[in-house]
């Protein structure tokens, strides 16, 4: 599968602060890729570089096969970009805004525009600056979906929105998803868990991991062992075990490369035959918290 977005060693420094540190991303076409991480992790910087709003300090980025640094003009006819910080022409009415955007895009779909206006319940005669934040985001999204973009890039699209508006936006985006690649950033893990197909975790400018959601969910397990005797943790544990802790005869850890047979064998090698073994699937939030706490990074040959 070809990539909609690919970056190699993408680095961005603002004076002495490194906002992005050798970012390597590969977003396959058709994916709904969520770039998550805490505030200040570098998500917006990464997106701005992809959109050629900022220039990288080093490394390269490709978006839909174009060098991101050369992206301009017609290249944006295939991209729909919406950001929570975007300054829209507040003096324009919603209807005029959509009307203004229309001629820029050869593939603009008037029917889809109408559909989006209806779906988002957009007030066409209201000025953009008079709209609430949520409505403004919906107007921006309508103006970014109506031309069937191949790539939809959303920077923190749901931040601070009430659940109803957020669901409307997600619904609107997902309806277009089959024909596009969606790349979005968020610091709220719960909101993307339900629809993202791929996820990348960025922390302090570094990508801790990037993979398919199902694969991620499958390989992470909370493991709880009940031993026959009070347990002590040996010095050396398998590298794929995270946050191991022992209390009385119980041992808990997070397995980041879960395979029932292999994990079971490793447990028996370390602790002998336990009285009970429980494997519990983890939420995305739990996985990220574990990742953040262990502060580990996915690198070649060191995949968790």
């Amino acid at each position: 599968m070809s990539s909609a977005i690919r970056t190699e060693n993408l680095t961005k420094s603002f004076r002495r602060v490194t906002a992005l540190d050798r970012l390597g991303l590969d977003v396959p076409e058709g994916a709904i890729y969520a770039l998550v991480g805490p505030n200040g992790a570098g998500k917006t910087t990464a997106i701005k570089i992809l959109m050629n709003i900022l220039r990288p300090s080093s490394g390269r980025a490709e978006v839909l096969g174009n060098d991101a640094q050369r992206m301009a003009g017609k290249a944006f006819t295939a991209i729909g970009y919406v950001s929570e910080n975007q300054e829209l022409p507040g003096w324009m009415r919603v209807g005029a805004f959509l009307e203004y955007l229309r001629p820029f895009y050869p593939a603009w779909d008037r029917d889809l525009e109408k559909e989006l206006v209806k779906q988002f319940d957009l007030p066409l005669d209201r000025k953009l600056r008079e709209l609430s934040r949520g409505m403004r985001m919906k107007a921006a999204l309508a103006g970014s979906l109506a031309y069937h973009p191949r790539l939809i890039v959303l920077d923190e699209p749901f931040g601070g929105l009430d659940p109803l508006v957020r669901d409307e936006l997600i619904e609107g985006m997902l309806e277009r998803a089959p024909e596009a690649t969606v790349f979005l950033s968020s610091h709220d893990l719960a909101e993307i868990e339900s629809f993202a197909s791929h996820v990348g975790y960025l922390d302090q400018g570094r990508l801790l991991f990037s993979e398919e959601m199902t694969e991620l969910a499958n390989r992470f397990r909370e493991v709880e062992l009940t031993l026959e005797a009070p347990a002590t943790l040996p010095q050396r544990l398998p590298t794929t075990w995270m946050q191991a802790k022992a209390s009385a005869s119980a041992v808990q850890f997070i397995e980041s490369r879960f395979d029932q047979e292999r994990t079971g064998t490793e447990i028996r090698q370390v602790f002998g035959e336990p009285r009970n073994i429980a494997f519990a699937p983890m939420s995305l939030r739990s996985i990220f918290l574990a990742m953040a706490r262990s502060g580990r990074r996915v690198e070649e040959g060191d995949r968790l």
Binding site: L54, N85, E87
Partner: peptide, 19 residues
């Protein structure tokens, strides 16, 4: 300044404008 060239938040920079 309607299509401001200063800053990184203007909507038009990610639209198909030809400079």
């Amino acid at each position: 300044q309607d299509e401001s060239l200063v800053g990184d938040r203007q909507f038009w920079v990610t639209r198909p404008y030809e400079w």
